[in-house]
Write a protein that binds this DNA or RNA. Structure first.
Length: 863
DNA sequence: GCAAGGTC
């Protein structure tokens, strides 16, 4: 039998292209976690059967084991030495299982992952999943190196298969571990420290990261420049002359001076002279070059500055354009096209467009240019329109982005813009002046990208030595102005320059600092730091400025490059870098009061924030409800914080108290029209009094046990108290038909009475418009559900003779069963006794010079 | 509730 060859690409679209090229389109495709394309062909000169499939980016991502997931129980400093685990990035898609199945019976594995470090790392993830042995690399495991998905590159790569590069893969492993440990340790520490003290921070988490923090640093740096800016007064003047009907204001070669008397003296010299004399004229042919191909960073910059679309939105829109086939792959660093690129067919696809079709047809008829040489990062070709589209097909914002991509592409193959620049120079009273004219001879690409056009400025003819009368020389006073807040587009440039983030992640980091409430996007998409953002950066600056400088990223990159080049072992680099960061972390903790002093000046303490809401069961005083994220209760006299469920509203619940601890109950209503409402006791929610409750509201679903973290806890609907009228025992009606939970009466759902499941999102609407619906404490003899009592509305009662009171089982009683309706899920059927379905409820790190007294602030620079 | 990197 011919040997089988499994080939794996980084994304489904590449697998399709590779299979199509190698099979000449004669392949069969079947579905799986990702599509699998099969065909017969030649492999290393022999007949072989090919299977081509793909992953979807990284198969795994790193995290801490569950033991370290509890914020309260883990000391962040321990994270530096904690083990890490690799978990499937997208467990639902079962990529690992898919690869393992497809690898069965295959003799060869050919890796077609993108040709960068991340791709090399994914190669090794794939090897791991397929079950091929690592020491078969170069033998049965081969790597295809290609810089574009073109016929030529694919065939050349196939003829020149190499070994996967383990060192590059290990470099990425190192980065993952360092980023995780450093980011999570700092984030947990500062979140707990500041959220435990201040009530109006308005951020659910106060995060730190080697990309997001320097990104914020750029924004704060600019705003500090603005705040400390001292305006200066300056003076200038511009003689007015009239020539052949042109009213000209000549520019002073000195531009401006900062001393009034000096300016006035110059002005007088010029005024006294009465005329200006032409001292010279020059004419120069200038060229404004057509653009290179469009890469992600440049697209994001234009989208932000010219289209008013944020990077995050732009990437989402671009992603949609890509998946629908309107543009090529939108995440690329390259601005150069491969030599074989077919520009003509791209143009042909655009020639019917009502806006730019004409320009395209002229290019096709008269010959188009190749784009200016850009840089080839070896990833994907520049972002290029693929299919023609109309505004109706895409919708407004997507259309505007597509429109730009088209205009840019057509610009790249259009002629350069050519113009003549004329400069005329003058003298008066010893002072020099000039004026400039521009005349466009070839509009070129600027006719399709009009915002790049060169202004036409006509000047009259002058002759050397000519003297022209000065009409007016007014002294003008001006003021230097501070720079504006950093624009998104400027921020993207800074990030690119300092190597912060990648084409795929730059927008994520910017989005992060917005979502964490560190910056706000103001008009003109300028980023204004909030008090929180500014205070954080100022804090890092006074404790350890390295923490927020951009070189923290380049430091890490530099270190892991040593691994990628095979110069230092992975384990040594990781240990060394983590050791340094651990020192920085310890120093940060030690000096946190310096940062705290800044917080104190800016924010109010928990005691000063919030409004009085409900009584504490311990001291019987009112506790404060702090509504800013994360919403919580704070007892001033006990100095205790009680976490609450998030993303909803909290109010006092009828001044009822919990029979267990005397805390007043509060009512939480989830946001959204179908949002559940439920009561909870603040104390029980945070410290569930009964053992064996492993389903907590809002808890992470990890293994079988729920974790009691912030925002997770036991509301009354999970409470097994036998007699309290809010517990699941008294309010529960029947087993949930969709999961192992219980359907509970929503106590405040009147008049749209309903039951909701205390575990999943299943909901059941009860007879509508009833005055009252309550549980009775009696059980249905047939199905063990709770008998409910309904007090129907007099006008709408379904009962004979206008009777209103009725009780029964919603499953067994015909009348009640006919009045209920399942909201989420397929069917609501009667089930037997028991709830048996589904899951049960249930160092040898190298330190430089061996010195223990290194100042951790300085440990990066001189490495 | 945490990082940054792939991709959707």
């Amino acid at each position: 039998m011919a040997p089988r060859v499994l080939m794996v690409a980084e994304k489904p679209s590449i697998a399709l292209s590779i299979a199509s090229e190698l099979s000449n389109g004669r392949m069969s495709t079947r579905r799986g976690s990702t599509d699998v394309h099969e065909f017969d062909g030649l492999f290393q000169g022999y007949h072989a059967h090919f299977r081509v499939t793909s992953v979807i980016g990284h198969v795994f991502s790193v995290d801490f084991p569950s033991k370290y997931q509890n914020w309260e129980a883990t000391d962040p400093v321990d994270l530096f030495h904690a083990p890490i685990v690799k978990l499937e990035s997208n467990p639902k898609v079962h990529i690992c299982r898919h690869l393992s199945q497809e690898a069965r019976g295959c003799t060869y594995l050919v890796l077609w992952l993108d040709c960068d470090r991340e791709g090399e790392n994914i190669c090794h993830e794939v090897i791991q999943c397929t079950g091929f042995s690592e020491n078969e690399t170069g033998d049965r495991i081969l790597r295809a190196r290609f810089s574009s998905v073109t016929e030529k590159d694919i065939l050349v790569a196939m003829e020149n298969l190499v070994k996967p590069n383990k060192d590059e893969a290990l470099a990425v492993d190192a980065r993952q571990e360092i980023d995780l440990k450093v980011g999570v340790a700092f984030t947990r520490f500062q979140t707990r420290y500041f959220q435990g003290k201040y009530g109006n921070l308005d951020s659910r988490v106060i995060s730190y990261g080697p990309c997001q923090t320097p990104t914020l640093g750029f924004c704060v740096q600019r705003s500090m420049q603005i705040m400390t800016f001292k305006p200066e007064i300056f003076w200038s003047f511009s003689p007015s002359v009239m020539k052949d009907g042109y009213d000209l204001h000549l520019e002073w070669d000195r531009n401006k001076v900062f001393d009034h008397d000096v300016a006035a003296m110059f002005q007088k010299l010029v005024l006294d002279h009465n005329y200006v004399e032409v001292t010279g004229m020059s004419k120069k042919e200038e060229t404004k070059g057509r653009p290179c191909g469009l890469n992600t960073v440049n697209l994001l910059k234009v989208a932000s500055s010219a289209l008013g679309l944020g990077p995050h939105t732009s990437m989402q829109l671009a992603e949609r354009l890509y998946t629908q086939g309107f543009i090529s792959y939108p995440r690329t660093e390259s601005t150069a096209y491969p030599a074989s690129f077919d520009f003509k067919s791209v143009l042909v696809a655009q020639q019917a467009n009502p806006f730019w079709g004409n320009h395209v047809r002229i290019l096709l008829a008269q010959g188009f240019h190749k784009p200016r040489i850009g840089s080839d990062a070896g990833d994907h070709p520049p972002i290029t329109p693929m299919r023609a589209a109309t505004e109706e097909m895409l919708g407004n914002d997507t259309w505007r982005l597509y429109q730009y991509i088209c205009q840019h592409f057509i610009g790249t193959v259009s002629p350069d813009c050519k113009y003549t620049r004329t400069k005329v120079e003058f003298i008066a009273g010893g002072e020099l002046f000039h004026c400039v004219g521009q005349h466009v001879s070839t509009k070129g690409f600027t006719s399709i990208m009009p915002w790049m056009a060169v202004d036409e400025k006509n000047l009259p003819e002058f002759t050397k030595g000519e003297k022209i009368k000065i009409l007016k020389v007014d002294l003008q006073e001006g003021r230097t102005a501070p720079p504006d807040y950093l624009s998104e587009s400027e921020l993207i440039s800074l990030m690119e320059k300092h190597g912060i983030g990648t084409d795929a992640s730059i927008s994520v980091h910017i989005n992060n600092i917005c979502e964490r409430n560190y910056v706000q996007v103001n008009s003109g998409r300028r980023l204004v730091p909030t008090a929180l953002g500014t205070t954080l950066i100022r804090g890092y600056q006074c404790i350890d400025v390295d923490l927020c400088l951009p070189d923290i990223r380049s430091f890490i990159e530099h270190q892991i490059t040593l691994i990628a080049k095979g110069k230092v072992k992975h384990v040594h680099v990781v240990q060394h870098v983590l050791q340094q960061f651990k020192q920085k972390f310890s120093y940060f903790i030690k000096k946190i009061e310096n940062m705290d002093a800044l917080f104190e000046a800016q924010f109010s303490t928990l005691a000063e924030s919030g409004r009085l809401l409900s009584k504490c069961g311990k001291c019987t005083r009112y506790m404060k409800f702090i509504s800013t994220q994360p919403a919580r209760l704070y007892c001033i006299s006990c100095e205790e914080v009680y976490h609450l469920p998030q993303n909803g509203s909290i109010k006092l619940y009828k001044e009822l108290t919990c029979p267990l601890d005397g805390f007043e109950l509060v009512l939480f209503s989830m946001s959204g029209s179908d949002g559940k409402s439920f009561p909870l006791c603040p104390y029980c929610y945070n410290c569930p009094p009964f053992e064996g409750i492993d389903t907590l509201f809002g808890a992470m679903k990890l293994g079988n046990s729920a974790k009691l973290g912030k925002g997770a806890g036991m509301p009354c609907f999970l409470c097994p108290h036998p007699t309290c009228r809010h517990s699941v025992i008294t309010q529960g009606v029947c087993a949930c038909p969709e999961c192992s939970g219980t359907l509970v009466l929503d106590p405040v759902s009147s008049p749209k009475w309903r039951l909701y499941c205390n575990t999943c999102n299943c909901m059941v609407s009860l007879p509508q418009g009833a005055h009252r619906i309550s549980t009775t404490g009696k059980k249905c003899p047939d199905c063990d559900s709770s008998i409910i009592e309904v007090d129907f509305n007099k006008k709408t009662t379904p009962l004979p003779d206008g009777a209103t009171l009725y009780s029964g089982c919603i499953l067994c009683d015909e009348l009640l069963h006919s009045l209920i309706e399942m909201k989420h899920g397929k069917s609501f059927f009667r089930r037997g006794r028991g709830r048996g379905r589904g899951r049960g409820r249930g160092g040898r790190g190298r330190t430089r010079g061996g010195s223990k007294h290194e100042d951790p602030k300085m440990s990066f620079r001189d490495f």
